[in-house]
Every structure is written in C-alpha cells, then in structure tokens.
C-alpha cells in the first residue's frame, strides 16, 4: 500500500486519480500510524513552499524517520522542493533537508514568462530508476516559479533548461522527486509513477 500524504496543500486529487488509473493500492492520509505502515510515500503539493513547509511541519519528523529507515519517498512539485535543505520563497524556510541544495526564484530578467508553465524537455541522468523505459529524455508538464539548485554529489538529477538549468527530478537512495507533475504528464508521466510503484514493490519484497 502506498500513502499519498495529504497535509492540506494541493493537488491530492490529481495525484490520487493517476495512481488509481495505473491500478495501484493507494491511501490518502496524514496519520503517522498509516504513514508508518506504507510501502512507499508520495508527498505532493502546489503553491508556496514556505506555506507548504508550515503545513507539513507536524509530520516532518515522521517523514524524516521513514526516509532514514529506507522507505521510498516521492516528492512532487512543491513536495519535491520540500526535500531540499532550504527554500528562499517569500523569506528563508528550512525544509526537510533530505537532499543538499536550495530552492530559489527563476530569474525574472531573462525575458521568459514566469511561471515556467507547460511542457519542457527533461534530459535524464544515466540509470535513473524513475525513468526506466523512457530513453534519454522526454517532455513533462511543469508549473513553477522557483527551482531547486542541487548541491549533492550523491544525488542523480534529470535537468531541464529554462534560461537556467532547472533540476527536474532527483534520486538519492530511497529519496525520489520530480519538479514536474508526473500525474499530469500524460503517458510518460504515468510511466514515472508506475516505475515508482515498482521501486516500492521491490523494496518491500527485499529485491
């Protein structure tokens, strides 16, 4: 069973729809007891990361413990940004610190429309489990004004270009994250979610 963490910020319904569509066993919850029983965790989120971190604070320790215990965790969009050490969106906020790096604004002086809204090409790093079966790169749907600058030698990252190099997805041990919305990226996005489900199944069966 996978748990989508519902902490009151965001697009839980879209993420739930997508996991149900691919046939996975999904529960939506914010209860630490349910989170502890899950085979894998999904942390969604939209809006501002500072506000999201405030809302996730009551279960932050629980999430960190689960992550440290090796449970697969997938952050999506703002949920992805919360995986980093800190965010500079409307002040500086400490986040979960599972990946080294910080979340900063996309520069506004490059003549690009902000938010970074729409489908951008994502180039994968070698052997990323999230992108199994998808080749070297694909288009995914983004909606972000802030982006993560990764500073973590142990983390594999997929990148996209929007005036600057934007960290589009990460993998570090059992920690996974996507800046884009896999649940809204058509067949390729659903494949990413299927890959995450497979990762959770394999971890659970000790492969």
């Amino acid at each position: 069973m996978l748990v989508i963490i519902d902490y009151g910020v965001g697009n839980v319904r879209s993420v739930t729809n997508a996991f149900r569509y691919i046939g996975s066993d999904i529960t939506v919850s914010c209860d630490p007891a349910v989170i502890a029983r899950a085979d894998g965790l999904i942390l969604p989120g939209v809006g501002a990361s500072g506000y999201a971190m405030q809302k996730v604070a009551p279960i932050a320790d629980c999430l960190k413990e689960q992550a440290a215990a090796g449970k697969p965790l997938l952050g999506i969009c703002v949920g992805f940004q919360l995986l980093f050490k800190e965010s500079h969106e409307m002040g500086t906020h400490q986040c979960l610190g599972l990946i080294k790096g910080k979340v900063v604004p996309i520069p506004t002086d490059l003549g690009l429309t902000i938010p970074h809204m729409g489908w951008n090409y994502v180039k994968f790093a070698d052997n990323m489990r999230l992108f199994d079966g998808l080749g070297d790169g694909r288009h995914f749907a983004f909606a972000n004004s802030f982006y993560a600058q990764m500073d973590d030698a142990e983390t594999k990252a997929a990148m996209t270009e929007y005036g600057v190099q934007i960290t589009a997805a990460v993998e570090k041990g059992n920690i996974y994250g996507c800046q884009f919305h896999p649940e809204k990226s058509a067949a390729d996005g659903l494949q990413v979610l299927k890959n995450f489900v497979k990762i959770c199944d394999e971890e659970q069966s000790g492969c």
């Binding site: 319904r13 879209s14 729809n17 997508a18 149900r20 569509y21 749907a141 909606a143 919305h181 649940e183 809204k184 990226s185 058509a186 067949a187 996005g189 659903l190």
Partner: peptide, 9 residues
C-alpha cells in the same frame, strides 16, 4: 472528467 485526464486541467 478529471478521473480520465492526465494533462493539466
């Protein structure tokens, strides 16, 4: 509609 739409809606 949303249950079958996997693009931004």
């Amino acid at each position: 509609v949303a249950a079958n739409v996997f693009i931004p809606f």
